[in-house]
Amino acid sequence: MIRLDRRQSAIGGLLVTGATSAAWESPERVTGAMTVLGAVSGTSIKCSGNRPLVGYVDATAVVALRHIRELRRALFIGQPSAPLTVEIFDGGTVTLPAASGELRYILSLTAIDGVIELRAEPVPARADAAELWQEFGFSMTTNAAARRQGH
C-alpha cells in the first residue's frame, strides 16, 4: 500500500500505464468503467470542461487529481503478464510487476478526504474485467439512475 500526500493527491494527473480497463465510483455511488479501446459501461463522471474524471489518453489511464474529491475509488486492471505503472506530476513512479502463475495484480485506488491510497490486489489471472468489477463491489450505474442522483 502507498499513500500519497495531499499535494501529490491534488496536482496534475495520476497516470496508469498498462491498464486495459478502469472502473470508478463517485462519493454518490455513481459507477462506470472504460476499456483502453474506448468501450464504456455505466456512467462517466465529468469534471469542468466536460472532461472525464477517469479516462484514457491514448493507452494511458488518467485520473484528474484537481477534482479528486469527486472520486471515491477506482480500479485499474492490466494484462496478467504485464506490469502496471503509476506516475504522478513530480515524476514519482511505482510499478506493480507482472505476476506469475495463476495470479495477477490489479491497482485499487481509494480517495479518503482528498488523499489517495493505492493498493496492489492479487486476483485470479483468468478473471475478466466484469468479474473483477463485481468482486470489488462495482455495480455499473445506468444513466437514468445517475440523473435521479443529480448527475
Results as ranks from 00 to 15, higher is better:
residue 60 T to K: 02
residue 30 V to C: 09
residue 118 L to N: 12
residue 105 Y to K: 05
residue 54 V to W: 01
residue 148 R to P: 01
residue 144 A to Y: 11
residue 90 D to Q: 06
residue 38 G to S: 08
residue 58 D to V: 12
residue 16 V to T: 10
residue 118 L to D: 07
residue 31 T to N: 00
residue 134 Q to D: 15
residue 127 A to Y: 11
residue 141 T to H: 05
residue 41 S to V: 00
residue 97 P to S: 13
residue 96 L to K: 07
residue 59 A to P: 00
residue 118 L to C: 13
residue 65 L to R: 10
residue 42 G to D: 04
residue 16 V to Y: 03
residue 135 E to V: 08
residue 28 E to H: 11
residue 44 S to M: 10
residue 123 V to C: 11
residue 132 L to I: 12
residue 17 T to E: 15
residue 41 S to F: 07
residue 74 A to D: 05
residue 23 A to G: 11
residue 106 I to D: 02
residue 117 E to C: 12
residue 48 S to L: 06
residue 93 T to L: 05
residue 147 R to F: 14
residue 123 V to H: 14
residue 65 L to K: 15
residue 67 H to Y: 15
residue 139 S to M: 06
residue 78 G to F: 04
residue 80 P to H: 15
residue 76 F to D: 00
residue 144 A to S: 13
residue 51 R to E: 15
residue 87 E to S: 14
residue 149 Q to I: 02
residue 129 A to I: 02
residue 94 V to Q: 15
residue 24 W to Q: 09
residue 91 G to Y: 08
residue 149 Q to M: 14
residue 29 R to H: 12
residue 110 T to G: 10
residue 131 E to I: 13
residue 97 P to C: 08
residue 86 V to K: 02
residue 126 R to F: 12
residue 70 E to M: 12
residue 45 I to H: 00
residue 128 D to I: 12
residue 92 G to M: 08
residue 99 A to D: 11
residue 82 A to M: 08
residue 109 L to P: 04
residue 115 V to C: 06
residue 90 D to G: 09
residue 25 E to M: 12
residue 40 V to W: 08
residue 79 Q to A: 10
residue 86 V to Y: 03
residue 49 G to H: 11
residue 88 I to H: 03
residue 102 E to G: 06
residue 60 T to L: 01
residue 109 L to D: 09
residue 106 I to W: 01
residue 142 T to I: 09
residue 141 T to Y: 04
residue 25 E to H: 01
residue 67 H to A: 14
residue 61 A to Y: 03
residue 45 I to P: 01
residue 134 Q to S: 09
residue 113 D to E: 15
residue 56 Y to I: 04
residue 43 T to L: 04
residue 56 Y to H: 12
residue 15 L to F: 10
residue 142 T to M: 07
residue 125 A to H: 03
residue 77 I to E: 10
residue 39 A to T: 08
residue 144 A to W: 08
residue 74 A to M: 05
residue 55 G to M: 06
residue 129 A to K: 02
residue 117 E to L: 06
residue 36 V to A: 11
residue 144 A to C: 02
residue 18 G to R: 00
residue 15 L to A: 15
residue 108 S to M: 11
residue 47 C to S: 01
residue 87 E to I: 00
residue 64 A to D: 15
residue 84 L to M: 11
residue 80 P to E: 13
residue 81 S to A: 08
residue 31 T to M: 13
residue 98 A to M: 09
